[in-house]
């Protein structure tokens, strides 16, 4: 399996490690960190997953290459890679949004 790194070009899967689904960390004011809402939000952030059968945005690390964190949008039914962008950039945010918009319909 080749992953098209935006910095290094197509590289073997073995050069990368996967962190899992890309998801937004809850933003909570320091004063509210011990509140019920914050605890629930962080529990959901740490443990709950969409786990879609279809396109999913993920964070991958190119450890044996450029050592960049990447946002990879991948179809979990076919393993097809739909886009790879540098994580944290506007481009990555757009690909993340696009992946969330593409709600999976068909069964695997």
């Amino acid at each position: 399996m080749l992953i098209p790194c935006p910095f290094c070009g197509p590289r073997d899967l073995g050069e990368f490690s996967v962190l899992g689904a890309a998801r937004a960390r809850p933003v909570v004011a320091v004063a509210d960190l011990d509140g019920e809402a914050a605890v629930a939000a962080f529990a959901a952030y740490v443990y709950e997953r969409e786990n879609p059968a279809g396109p999913q945005a993920e964070h991958w690390f190119h450890g044996a290459g450029c050592q960049h964190w990447l946002t990879v949008v991948r179809d979990t039914r076919t393993h097809a890679i739909l886009s790879v962008t540098s994580a944290g950039t506007d481009e990555a945010a757009q690909s993340l949004e696009a992946a969330q918009g593409a709600a999976p319909e068909a069964a695997p």
């Binding site: 996967v18 899992g20 689904a21 786990n51 999913q56 991948r74 979990t76 039914r77 393993h79 695997p108």
Partner: peptide, 8 residues
């Protein structure tokens, strides 16, 4: 296999 998948 290291990444989430529904492919059998």
């Amino acid at each position: 296999d290291p990444f989430p998948s529904y492919a059998q």
